[in-house]
Amino acid sequence: MILAIISKVLLAAGCGFLIVGSLGVNRFPDFYSRTHAATKPDTMGLILSMLGLALYDGINLNSAKLLLIVIFVAIGNPAATHALGWAALSSRLMPWFRKGREPR
């Protein structure tokens, strides 16, 4: 009973973070700021919702599998973002600065 409530709270919170991540990708002004929105709320939202799903039917083998997905995504997401950021930097994409000029 308590487990079910915790699971629903986790799912709802994770869902909120995922929506924030999606909004951030659309709202931020340049590529480098968008990577922030793409990594942090996204990873956090996935961790929370996956934990919620893992507790949804009680703890069993599926919970362990969901936990493995969480660990994989938590390591893989920052690495993928880093690879993209490095690629953008080496193709000379200028970051946006508040007091400076517009991004190209």
Binding site: L18, S22, F31, L46, V73, A88
Partner: peptide, 16 residues
């Protein structure tokens, strides 16, 4: 790169 960030974000959500 902006397009790829969008694709990555959508991909994470697809897993869920």
């Amino acid at each position: 790169f902006d397009r790829l960030v969008g694709v990555g974000v959508a991909g994470t959500k697809t897993v869920l």
